[in-house]
Amino acid sequence: MTATITLVRGDITRQSADAIVNAANSSLLGGGGVDGAIHRRGGPAILEDCRRLRASHHGKGLPTGRAVATTAGDLDARWVIHTVGPVHGAPGGDPELLASCYRESLRVADELGARTVAFPAISTGVYRWPMDDAARIAVETVRSTPTAVEEVRFVLLDDRAYEAFARQLG
């Protein structure tokens, strides 16, 4: 089954969904951009869960392209799925790792039983992935990944990102 893809221009922390995807850094301990916003709005429960993950399975941090879930804290969601995108132009800045962020997040969503998942434009902020290429990878990957998720919502902060994703949806 393939999820229905919708686009929303807005703040991902204001979305109501089963799972909200966080463009996390490998430490899982919060940061800037989407990561910082999710941690701030979601409150301390998210950070507590992330610290537990670091103390157990992810002592060295979450590898690029992988995904894990925590509580969503005060967000209007059941879970936050954290994924670490690649840095464009840096060693390991492989487009396959960006695609893996979307596939792995959908895999985790399926394990959780999530039916609605809200994604940001992973790696397009401080990780400098060109927006048009990131949109192409995101849409192609979601379209080609079998999932029980019914709706994938790309939540895009500005017109430039929204338009790039809209072009990919045709």
Rank of each mutant, 00 (worst) to 15 (best):
M1Q: 13
I5Y: 02
I5H: 01
R9P: 04
G10R: 10
D11T: 03
T13E: 07
R14Y: 11
R14I: 03
Q15G: 04
Q15S: 14
S16I: 02
S16G: 09
D18P: 02
A19T: 07
N22G: 10
S27E: 12
L28D: 00
G30T: 11
G33C: 07
G33Q: 12
D35C: 10
A37G: 06
I38G: 04
H39C: 03
G43T: 04
I46Y: 09
E48Q: 14
R51A: 09
R52Y: 08
R54D: 06
A55C: 00
S56V: 13
S56P: 04
H57P: 04
H57S: 15
G59L: 02
P63D: 11
G65I: 02
R66S: 13
R66E: 15
A69S: 15
T70V: 10
A72S: 13
D74R: 15
L75I: 10
D76K: 06
A77S: 13
R78N: 14
H82I: 03
T83C: 10
V84H: 01
P86L: 10
P86F: 08
H88S: 06
A90P: 00
A90V: 02
A90S: 05
A90F: 10
P91A: 11
P91Q: 07
G93K: 00
E96L: 13
L97Y: 10
L97E: 04
L98I: 08
S100M: 08
Y102A: 06
S105N: 12
A109C: 06
E111M: 05
L112P: 01
G113P: 14
G113L: 15
A114G: 11
V117E: 06
F119K: 11
F119N: 11
F119W: 13
I122H: 04
S123Q: 02
T124P: 01
G125R: 01
V126R: 13
V126P: 01
W129T: 00
P130L: 08
D132N: 03
A134W: 01
A135K: 05
A135M: 05
A138C: 03
V139M: 08
E140P: 05
E140G: 07
T141W: 14
T141D: 12
R143P: 08
R143A: 14
P146S: 15
V149Y: 12
E151G: 02
R153W: 00
F154I: 01
L156G: 04
L156W: 11
L157G: 09
R160W: 07
A161R: 08
E163C: 01
F165Q: 04
A166E: 15
R167E: 10
R167S: 04
Q168N: 06
L169W: 05
G170A: 14
